[in-house]
């Protein structure tokens, strides 16, 4: 980082741009995250709107994944991790005593960086969520859920003849779509995606990006990505993180054409990161 950029970062007290939306699905307010003594997130306030894709970009280690994982309490299992501030889903606080993490994760699904299908058949991969949550009353309903989820994930035609084949027998891109199908089978309200295409080739990536755009009709989506092109293609709003601070938020088009903050500009023009 150049001296000028460093100064700009140190001077950063407040996120540039509008962090709130009119019709929020999730709201994070003044979130700080600590791993032991080390602070990973500084005072982040950000809304996730309904039927919108919000992309989080930034250099490695900027805290965007950490922030994403706070949104469905996936950091719970890390004993040293402490989250302060408030995150709400439809006005309910995520970290309050009344919020059950199991229920929360049924409402806020997650797709991971590396495709991680279960060591089960394609059918069982998708059916697992509905099964444990008791979403299907009988086998026929379960079949319907599996089929429609695979269809919405754009995978059904490719696998309809081999639903009993192991999920891991699919190609990387297919596996990731299977993981997306698995997530939407539970009918969540929000889908979090943590660099979902970083392990995929361009063709599989394009397919997933299309899918994300289609899913936007029904879900609120937050996606972390390393690829600025991807953020530009799939998201409506973009949030730029830098060393744990949320530097700038705005409409994707504006962020990529006319960024307000010097750090954002440096990043999207490729000067660092």
């Amino acid at each position: 980082m150049s001296d000028a950029a460093k100064e700009a970062f140190d001077a950063l007290k407040e996120t540039v741009g509008r962090v709130t939306v009119d019709d929020p699905k999730m709201q994070a307010q003044n979130v700080d995250v600590f791993y032991g003594d080390k602070q990973a997130i500084y005072d982040v306030t950000l809304d996730v709107a309904k039927n919108e894709v919000v992309a989080m970009i930034g250099p490695s280690g900027c805290g965007k994944s950490t922030f994403l994982r706070c949104l469905n309490r996936m950091n719970d299992t890390i004993p040293s991790c402490k989250v302060t501030g408030d995150i709400t889903l439809e006005g309910e606080s995520l970290y309050s005593k009344d919020m059950d993490p199991v229920l929360l994760r049924a409402r806020v699904g997650m797709v991971f960086q590396k495709p991680n299908p279960f060591a089960k058949s394609i059918y069982d991969n998708v059916a697992y969520g509905p099964k444990i949550h008791g979403l299907a009353n009988n086998r026929a309903e379960l079949d319907d859920i599996v089929e429609s989820s695979l269809q919405r994930a754009g995978l059904f035609d490719e696998v309809k003849d081999r639903l009993t084949a192991p999920g891991t027998s699919l190609s990387g891109g297919q596996q990731q779509r299977l993981c997306i199908a698995r997530t939407i089978a539970v009918s969540p309200e929000v889908i979090l995606m943590d660099e979902p295409c970083s392990a995929l080739d361009p063709i599989a990536t394009a397919r997933i990006e299309e899918l994300i755009d289609e899913l936007r009709e029904n879900y609120a989506i937050a996606i972390v990505t390393h690829s600025m092109q991807q953020a530009a293609r799939v998201s409506q709003r973009t949030a730029y993180f830098h060393l744990g601070k949320l530097v700038e938020v705005g409409e994707t088009k504006r962020i990529f054409t006319n960024p307000s903050h010097e750090l954002t500009e440096n990043y999207i023009t490729g000067r660092f990161g």
């Binding site: 996936m74 994760r105 991680n116 299908p117 697992y128 444990i132």
Partner: peptide, 11 residues
């Protein structure tokens, strides 16, 4: 990753 996947689904 298997544990994360299952937990992420609400297991």
């Amino acid at each position: 990753s298997i544990r994360e996947a299952a937990r992420g689904l609400g297991a």
